[in-house]
Write a protein that binds this DNA or RNA. Structure first.
Lengths: 122, 122
DNA sequence: CAAATATATGAACACATGCTCATACCTTTG
DNA sequence: CAAAGGTATGAGCATGTGTTCATATATTTG
């Protein structure tokens, strides 16, 4: 959906902590699209509850099913999406699949969103 | 800004606020729903570009139309949604409607999202 | 008031989304 | 290997969503 790479050098230096110029990302369609995909993953009630449950610890599909109160199939489908979007990782452990948040970015977004919704005007 | 937001105590920079226990919000269905509604507002390409444009300054519908490259009607419909969700405010100025971000929460979410998408693994 | 400019809104439509159902797959155990 | 527990996936369906089109409303100007 987003255009192919545009010539802009948004990552000035790979190695070091260039100041995070988030404003410059607003000119990069690919970054914008990627951002909406992440927000979209967080925008569904079931998915958000799954991710919320994973902030505490990694969990199996069965655990998530119980915690979120939806069918096994529904959980599995949503986990598939979250995995495809890169928000969670999965590993096998015997018969079970254990899911975990992919990195701290996800927890940060959840925290910021929750906190701001908790204080939201009106 | 994003660094100030990472971790659990998100507003300590401001001074006096009690530590924000975002984890407790995970038990409040209303807060969860409100959060998903905010993320949902940020999850559409057009809406995100509108909000992104508003991080620079307030703008009229016509400006947003040019900046986002979609029809006047589409912009107007999306602005309606953003207004209903409380992410933007509007004021009349002559024939024009001037829209602005409702508060810093919105800019923060955009910044965090963009920054993390920019660094997203893969 | 008529015309022009700027924005808003309802209806309709094409497409996306999230669920269920049925079933297949994978792993351990007997 | 068969059976059972645990998970994944495709199809189908009902509902939601973003856009366009046509038209309505609002505001300034002649």
């Amino acid at each position: 959906m987003a255009d192919a790479v545009r010539g802009k050098e948004l990552h000035l230096v790979d190695g070091e902590e260039a100041p995070d110029e988030w404003a410059s990302y607003l000119e990069d369609d690919d970054v914008i699209y990627a951002t909406t995909q992440i927000f979209d993953a967080l925008a569904d009630y079931t998915r958000f509850r799954i991710l919320g449950a994973l902030t505490t610890s990694e969990r199996s599909v069965g655990e998530l099913q119980r915690l979120c109160g939806v069918s096994q199939s529904a959980i599995s489908h949503q986990l598939r999406l979250l995995r495809d979007r890169g928000l969670v990782t999965m590993r096998r452990e015997g018969q079970r699949s254990i899911y975990a948040l992919a990195d701290e970015h996800v927890a940060t977004l959840i925290a910021v969103g929750l906190e701001h919704a908790g204080h939201w005007p009106e």
